[in-house]
Write a protein that binds this DNA or RNA. Structure first.
Lengths: 244, 244
DNA sequence: TAGGATACCTACCCGTGAGTATGGTCGAGG
DNA sequence: CCTCGACCATACTCACGGGTAGGTATCCTA
């Protein structure tokens, strides 16, 4: 758990293939934690690519260039594998809450900071597992655990919203529905984002926060942030297309 | 397809159980279309409750009080079943676009109208299938078809955003990212909404549109819509909890 | 260098669920 | 009364995949 190395010492720089501690099969670096972590990460990637049900443990094992029993040597079940991926993702968000807790800025800015981290977490390799792990795929016990973690995050967002309304940095609103809207938009990133995209997770999160902040309706003051290069021209073309 | 009846003539008012044309097994009302539609709806409900992979065709058949071959008598495969549910859901949204197309109001209002319909569709019984049908669960051909439909909707939203920016009813923004944020928030409704909820789909959609419109940052003008009962007290309590 | 622990493999079990072969029933038409 | 066809049930096949039994190679320790 406390071992942070992600690549084996033998492999200077992993090539296209996933970093597999088994690569140099001779010098075994009998570090359970590292390998276990590699199993979790490989599972997360496969789940992300093909979904939980369409990923067999043989697939995951093959990705690591080992066999299924080897995977079972590090985890007890496929369910636990999904659960671990979920926890890994959620932990990033919990960390975001901890980070902003003691910041001395208006609640809206703390919320924005959390949402930025949230977006990045969803776009990370564990994003899929965190967001799309279905309750129905897990045992009742794990399902309850996951629900509790999700609920904690949800209520953290709601609280920040309430605080923002209180300190005047956020417009009065229904905290519950607003939290659902914000989290939903960010969660959905996991449905369409692929790492080979042009935008990074941080950029997407930034763009989303801008939308949340400003809203669609134009403001009295000057237009904020959003880039406007070529907008005019593109709109004109779109309008023409609509014309017919 | 063109048969719009949703309940069999024999059953005056369906009780708790799903409306099954097989109910009174004696008087068979050999209307293929009605039965086929019932199969689709039953499948949508089961998928919604337990997910695609955790729903067997036996489950669906049992729900209709028939057996699996009977289901296969009306559909060719489980995959097609999911596809039909998807199409049924998406069609509601396409209809929304058609409805607003010729409205003589600012684009932002047309967008809002579409989003309201969108939200209701996602909260409908086909919402799950429309939103959570994974590409990976379907054959390449159907996957492509679904992607095309989704893309059509996405680009419809983007177009409305561009038009809004053009006619001044929407604040300048990146249409692509904004569309992702809006659609994502609404899509996510399918992940948490259950029909037995206190709020209707329409109410949720309304609340979301309010958030999208206004944004989080307070405006110069008066604060709109949202209720403020007890907010002060609750925040104080939350702040105390945070203090420790 | 025996003996145990670790780490991994080959080869299997078996439940599940999609899809089907076959045959029965019922109403309609001859 | 007999047949035909639409409709539906019983009872299968079969592939897939989660999980395991049991064996083997390597390393550590004494």
């Amino acid at each position: 758990m406390n071992n942070r190395r992600t690549s084996p010492p033998a492999a200077g720089k992993p090539r296209v293939a996933v970093d597999s501690p088994w690569r140099a099969s001779r010098e075994r670096l009998r570090d359970r934690a590292v390998k276990r972590e590699a199993v979790i990460r490989a599972a997360a990637r496969e789940f992300n690519r093909k979904g939980y049900h369409n990923t067999s443990l043989d697939d995951i094992a093959a990705r690591l260039e080992v066999t299924k029993p080897t995977v079972y040597y590090y985890v007890t079940s496929k369910e636990q594998l999904l659960f671990q991926c979920f926890v890994a993702g959620v932990e990033q968000i919990r960390a975001a809450f901890r980070d902003v807790r003691h910041l001395e800025v208006p609640a809206r800015e703390r919320l924005n900071a959390v949402l930025r981290h949230y977006g990045q977490a969803v776009a990370s390799e564990f994003g899929w597992c965190m967001v799309r792990a279905e309750d129905q795929d897990l045992s009742p016990a794990m399902s309850r655990h996951i629900k509790a973690l999700k609920s904690e995050i949800d209520h953290g967002i709601r609280r920040l919203i309430r605080e923002g309304v209180q300190d005047g940095s956020i417009q009065p609103c229904d905290p519950k529905m607003t939290a659902f809207a914000l989290a939903g938009a960010l969660n959905w990133i996991a449905h369409w984002y692929r790492e080979d995209q042009s935008l990074t997770g941080a950029q997407i999160a930034e763009a989303f926060v801008a939308v949340f902040e400003g809203g669609l309706r134009p403001r009295a003051g000057a237009a904020p942030l959003a880039a406007r290069r070529g907008t005019r021209r593109r709109v004109r073309r779109a309008a023409q297309a609509l014309g017919r």
